[in-house]
Simulated scan of single mutants.
Amino acid sequence: MLSVLLLSFSPAIWLLLATVLVQLYYAAYYFWPFATRPPEPAPTEAGAEPVSVLVCAHNELDNLRRLLPLLLRQEYPADLEIVLIDDRSDDDTYLYAQQLSQYYPNFRLVTIGRTPDGLSPKKYALTLGIKAARHPQLLFTDADCIPATNQWVQHLAAGFRQPADMVLGYSAYATEPGFLNKLVRFETLLTGAQYLSFAWRGQPYMGVGRNLAYTRAVFTSTKGFASHIRSLSGDDDLLVQDAVAQGARVAVVAEPAAHTLSEPAGTWGGWWRQKRRHLSAGRSYRLADRLRIGNFIGSNLLFYAVSLALLFSRADWIPLAGLWVARTGLVCATYQRLSRRLDDPLPVALLPVLDVVYFFYYLALGMSLFLYRNLRWK
């Protein structure tokens, strides 16, 4: 009887089941073990090396007034240098930096007057900042971020002792009212779950410049940003790609004390432009990484596409409902556990809705990048 029932299912149901099994694999091998791993040990003073924290800013005085004091108050047992790279700002960034340098001997300013034609402004500015930094271990964040705690430097720098040449951290977005904020945070959680858990499994492919660290030796081994210096995006993920190709060891530091916190996009258009810029670098990833990410994204998109088609087939409603219940339980359990582990909670009841909206939004972004590739930078 059971075999007859199974044979009566349409090929679309079997395809839908295959997509769920693919997603189950990612949850069981990457996401759930990463979310339930033991807490990372607290950093100790023993073995702490001097570090330089680099921040690149273009007309971000208000953000710098919030960020720099927090960086200067970081607790770190070894020498800590803060390097501000003023990238062609025409506000009062220079004057503010000069005031700080009078009171904090460990604060330094690197000023960029112009960017050579054809080069990415941020990558050019970061290159000059890295050359000016005094220490070989370099930590990076963005001007519109803040460290979650005054232990951020300690935790992120401790990743070098695993040992590692690069350290990947997690950067969350602030909680605000509205559906867009929840969707932005869901996308951030899902992206973080992928690049952190993949790296934890020995398959690193990207990081985020809001919370990233690497050694000067790694930067030198990749010849800096040379392979993608003309691309506006990729100062973080494409550098990780190049570094891994050169044999760099990558560590993950994902304790809440090591997070950074950013202000999310306040409009759909702002988030659209931001995500277009971030996703544009993906075409330069290694084939294995594109396949690994593509299988996960593609299985989710295919699940929804097949489900829509099956809504018009009354004979398949029962197995369709069963697979939807199973997948919804899988999504809620896995993403809730990840959000707790990364201290980035989202309403459990809203997770299935966010999942649907996100993957259709992702499809629209992919089509947009295929049809219209022009990008803008500040």
Rank of each mutant, 00 (worst) to 15 (best):
A78I: 10
R373E: 11
Y358N: 10
K122C: 07
N106S: 15
T222C: 14
V184G: 00
L196K: 03
V244Q: 08
D237S: 15
P41K: 07
H155R: 15
A132E: 15
T149Y: 05
N374S: 06
L67C: 05
D355E: 14
Y25G: 11
D144K: 06
Y30W: 13
R65Y: 11
L320M: 06
D343E: 08
G366T: 09
K131D: 14
Q154K: 13
T19F: 13
G266V: 10
N59R: 09
L119H: 05
L138P: 06
L338Y: 04
A333D: 06
A243Y: 00
R276K: 14
D165K: 03
V306T: 11
A46S: 13
R161A: 12
V325P: 03
A248D: 03
Q74K: 02
G224D: 12
L168N: 02
W324N: 10
K122G: 03
A199W: 05
R108P: 06
Y195K: 03
W271N: 06
A132D: 14
Y29G: 00
S8Q: 12
D165M: 04
L351V: 12
N374T: 10
L180P: 14
T115S: 09
P43Y: 08
T188I: 13
P41H: 08
L330G: 11
L16Y: 09
A27S: 15
A305M: 06
L261F: 01
Q274Y: 08
F219M: 08
A245L: 09
P163T: 00
L291N: 01
T220H: 09
G282L: 12
N150F: 05
G247V: 08
L196G: 03
A349C: 13
I293N: 09
F360C: 06
T44A: 14
F359Q: 08
L71D: 04
W324E: 05
V240H: 06
P264V: 07
L279M: 15
G247C: 07
V110M: 12
A148T: 01
L189I: 09
V253D: 05
G178E: 02
T111F: 01
A243D: 01
A35T: 05
A364S: 11
R337W: 01
P264M: 06
A174M: 11
R210V: 09
Y372P: 00
W152V: 03
R273C: 07
H259Y: 02
I82W: 04
T222P: 09
V253K: 10
I297C: 04
L287N: 02
T191H: 01
K122R: 14
R210Y: 01
G322W: 02
D92V: 00
L301M: 13
A254C: 12
P50T: 06
D344Q: 15
A213N: 05
N374D: 05
D235E: 15
